[in-house]
């Protein structure tokens, strides 16, 4: 913490079309885009707030809701689906005690569903803050998540 929204956005403000990079940078810091940050981004990039809001809500990697420290994304695209993604999802949900789309009460994990992450040589795949975990089985989940305790 410590950096202001403006400081986070600053490196991208002169980049044409850099608003998406700015959103990425904000998310890296907060794991979501806080309302005040979005307003600040709109101001710096000189676009209406409604438009900035429209951009942020278009892309699934951006969230305008508060999320956990670690974002677990479960791929449910067809190749992961036939490799048993449903079972992995159920196991994740029961291990974390939350449903897809929710955040654990301690604010540590957010579980999301996603489409193909391009690691299809080793299905099913999950990513944790962007890092892929391959060939995931229900049994492996405690061990994988223990790295993030």
């Amino acid at each position: 913490m410590g950096k202001s929204f403006e400081e986070i956005i600053a490196p991208f403000k002169d980049k044409k079309g850099g608003i998406i990079e700015a959103f990425h940078a904000l998310q890296k810091e907060y794991n979501f885009i806080p309302q005040e940050a979005l307003k600040e981004t709109a101001r710096i990039f000189r676009i209406p707030e409604a438009e900035a809001y429209g951009i942020a809500t278009f892309y699934t990697h951006f969230s305008i809701e508060k999320r956990g420290k670690y974002i677990i994304r479960m791929c449910e695209s067809a190749p992961c689906h036939v490799a048993g993604a449903d079972k992995v999802l159920k196991a994740l949900e029961s291990y974390l005690g939350i449903k897809a789309g929710e955040t654990t009460p301690d604010g540590k994990f957010t579980l999301e569903l996603c489409e193909c992450v391009g690691q299809c040589q080793a299905t099913p795949v999950i990513t944790i803050n962007g890092e892929p975990e391959l060939n995931v089985t229900p049994e492996k989940i405690p061990q994988i998540l223990s790295k993030y305790e």
């Binding site: 079309g17 850099g18 608003i19 998406i20 892309y59």
Partner: peptide, 22 residues
Amino acid sequence: RMGAGAYVCGEETALIESIEGQ
């Protein structure tokens, strides 16, 4: 430039829109 989770941006004009920050 990095996308943010939108398959449709593989379509060339959507991709251009996205680089433009839309």
